[in-house]
Every structure is written in C-alpha cells, then in structure tokens.
Amino acid sequence: MSLATTCKTGALELICRPEGGLTLGIELPLDNDWSAEREEKRLAEGRPFGVPDLTNYPDLVRQVDRSGFAAVWTRDVPVFDPHNFGDAGSVYDPFVNLGFLAGITENVALGTAAIVLPLRHPMMVAKAAASVDKLSGGRLILGVASGDRPVEYPLLGLDFEQRGEAFRDAVSYIRDAWKADGLPLGDGRIEPSLDLLPKPVQTQIPMIIAGQGRQTPEWIAANMQGRFVYPGGIERMAMQSRDWFVARKALGLSAGAFISAFHLDLADNPDEQATPRRFGARIGRRRFIDHLHALEDTGVNHLALLLRPARRPLTEVIDELARDVLPALKASFPAAKAALK
C-alpha cells in the first residue's frame, strides 16, 4: 500500500503528511491519575475514580502546543456515570473547552473525539463548531459519534435506538448551516432570510467519525473526511486503514485521515520492552518509536496519546516525546502547518 495520502480538507493538513508518515497528538485531560502514585493522591483528596486532577491543565496544554505535537483531542462525556462508565473524560463541556484552547494555543489542531451528535441540537453544534473554528484561525477537526452510553439518552428524553438516523440528519444539517445561503429548517428547506453566524474559517470543517455511528462503511467513506478507531494490533490496524482508503478511492475521493489512539506509560529506560495494557502499553521510547514506525507502515496518519497511565511527571514525558520521539518520525510538523496557511 502506498504510504502517501492526501488530506486536503483544512485542519486535516495539520495531522496528515502528504508524503505519508505519522503525526502525534495528545488526548485530554492531561493528567496521570491512572498511575499507582496518583491513585493514592486521588484517594487522599477524596476524588471519585475517573475524575482527573486538572490543576496543571493550562500549563500542560501550552507545553504540548509549543513542543511540535500536531493536535489535542477532547472528549464529550455529558454525564459522569461512576457505576457503569467510570471515566469523567475531559470533564469540561467540549465546546467551552475548545474556546479556551483556541485562546491559549497557536499551533495544534483542535479535535473532538467525539461530539455525540444525537444529544445536541444540530443548529447549536453548527454554531459552536464555527465559533471555535473562527477563534482558532481554522484549526478545528470535528470528530462526531452516535454515542455508546444508553444512560444519557433517557435523561434527555431521546430514543437510544434511533441514534443512527439522528446522527445522519445532524451531519446533513450542520453542513448546510455552515453555508452562506440561509438557515436550514430541518426538513430539507432553506430559509434565506435567516443565517447562522459566524461562518467557519475553513471552507469545510473536516468531520471524522469515531466508531461506526451506526452507519454503513459506504456512508462513512462518502460523508466523513476521516475515521478515528479504537487502538488495536498492527494487523487489525492495517486491515481497517486499508478498508478506509480503498472505500475512499472507490468513490473518487482523496484519502482523508485514518486516526487511532494509544494509552502510554513511557518508561524511564528507553529500551524497556512493552508491557501491554488495555489500549496501550508501558514502554521505553526506543521501542515505542519502533511501534510508531510499524503503524506508519500500515497507513495510520495520526495517533492520539493518552498519558493518564504515566508514572512519571507529565512535563518530563511530554518533553521526552518532543525531544526524542517526534524527530524520529518521517517528516516535521511545521511543514504541515505551513501547508494550511
């Protein structure tokens, strides 16, 4: 498979290299509360499991932004459900958080992984997303999903089983609302006397799908500019990326972006072999670079690193990744940023 790809959709150029190769991003909330030492601190402070310590969050985001990473990713977890889904995610409302991130960063793409579209009115999603894109100078990547937590739907009086249809309708509405020819009414009609402001900086804010959204592979390839998949083994990732790129090519579309994640505990010893954990590993940086090159060879464009399992201080981990890991990848991030401008 050719490693060259084409991400000619605005902010996707920040995370996709046209000549191929892998970029790295950071998944928020930027704590390391899943380590044993931090777990003791959490218990001492009386914080529930899954609720991150966000004390140093702004400074860590600034460090990521100036260190050459391609993106930061925030999640959409409306309700903390400690019994059935013991992870509070990024805690803050994603669009409020993205507005804050737009103000304290200059370089990274701002991604969502992912907004649960059926839980929000599409007009408000369209306005919030366009606002973030405007405030950030065109750096938004709108990851979307149908949601996988049934507890949220009854709280809003919504039908969990109808989320696939609601997802499709929302995607169509949002794209219509970003155009300059009036406001969609939700039934296929456009009201030319009304409009939604602001309009995005990007000609088209790229949408990527996390999971399947209860959609067919054909619909996903035709309507999304990228896929964000759960972490998996090299063979599985190669198969998924190949299916994505083949489906896009069959429709005469550019390759788009294929994205995944990795839960990283970066060891002090750079040669420490991987000790697997769910969705990632404890691993030394040289062995991690080997893994990244293997992912590059499968066609993965971008990997979002979750650092919550890290045993070391996050400032050290981010610095080592920036100093020793990013330069080992096949191209430099500044070239991609220049392409966007």
Results as ranks from 00 to 15, higher is better:
Ala4Glu: 10
Cys7Asn: 11
Gly10Val: 02
Ala11Thr: 00
Ile15Asn: 08
Gly21His: 04
Leu22Trp: 02
Leu24Phe: 01
Gly25Ile: 10
Leu30Phe: 09
Trp34Ala: 12
Ala36Glu: 13
Ala36Thr: 15
Glu37His: 04
Lys41His: 03
Arg42Leu: 06
Pro48Ile: 01
Gly50His: 14
Val61Glu: 06
Gln63Trp: 00
Gln63Leu: 11
Val64Arg: 08
Ala70Trp: 00
Ala70Gly: 10
Val72Lys: 00
Trp73Pro: 04
Thr74Gly: 14
Phe80Asp: 07
Phe80Glu: 11
Pro82His: 12
His83Pro: 00
Asn84Glu: 15
Asn84Lys: 08
Ala88Ser: 12
Ala88Gln: 12
Ala88Glu: 11
Ala88Leu: 08
Ala88Arg: 07
Val91Arg: 03
Tyr92Gly: 09
Asp93Val: 02
Pro94Val: 00
Pro94Asn: 02
Val96Phe: 11
Val96Ser: 10
Val96His: 13
Leu98Arg: 00
Phe100Pro: 03
Phe100Asn: 04
Ala102Lys: 00
Glu106Ala: 04
Asn107Pro: 11
Ala109Met: 03
Ala109Ser: 11
Ala113Pro: 06
Arg120Gln: 10
Arg120Tyr: 15
Arg120Trp: 11
Arg120Ile: 02
Pro122Tyr: 09
Ala129His: 02
Ser131Ala: 13
Asp133Phe: 00
Ser136Ile: 00
Leu140Cys: 09
Ile141Gln: 01
Leu142Pro: 02
Val144Gln: 06
Val144Arg: 01
Ala145Ser: 15
Gly147Gln: 04
Arg149Lys: 04
Pro150Glu: 14
Val151Gln: 12
Glu152Gln: 05
Leu155Gln: 13
Arg163Leu: 11
Ala166Glu: 15
Val171Gln: 10
Ser172Cys: 13
Ala177Glu: 07
Ala177Lys: 03
Lys179Asn: 13
Lys179His: 06
Asp181Met: 05
Asp181Thr: 06
Leu185Trp: 04
Gly188His: 13
Gly188Tyr: 05
Arg189Pro: 04
Arg189Asn: 15
Leu194Phe: 10
Leu194Ser: 10
Asp195Ser: 12
Pro198Gly: 03
Pro200Ser: 08
Val201Asp: 00
Gln202Thr: 13
Gln202Lys: 13
Thr203Ala: 07
Ile205Lys: 01
Gln212Ser: 15
Gln215Ile: 05
Gln215His: 05
Pro217Met: 06
Glu218Gly: 07
Glu218Arg: 15
Ala221Gly: 06
Asn223Pro: 11
Asn223Trp: 12
Met224His: 06
Arg227Cys: 08
Gly232Glu: 07
Gln240Arg: 15
Ser241Leu: 01
Trp244Pro: 01
Ala247Val: 06
Ala250Leu: 13
Ala250Pro: 08
Ala250Tyr: 10
Leu253Thr: 03
Ser254Thr: 13
Ala257Arg: 03
Ala257Asn: 05
Ser260Ile: 01
Ala261Trp: 04
Leu264Ser: 03
Leu266Asn: 07
Asp271Tyr: 12
Thr275Glu: 14
Thr275Ala: 14
Thr275Gln: 14
Pro276Tyr: 14
Arg277Gly: 14
Phe279Tyr: 07
Arg285Leu: 06
Arg286Gln: 10
Arg287His: 12
Leu295Cys: 07
Asp297Gly: 09
Gly299Lys: 03
Gly299Asn: 11
Leu307Phe: 11
Arg312Ile: 10
Pro313Trp: 07
Leu314Lys: 06
Leu314Asp: 01
Ile318Asn: 11
Leu321Met: 07
Ala322Tyr: 02
Pro327Asn: 04
Ala328Arg: 02
Leu329Thr: 09
Ala335Gln: 14
Ala336Ile: 05
Ala339Leu: 07
Lys341Val: 06
Lys341Ile: 05
Lys341Asn: 14
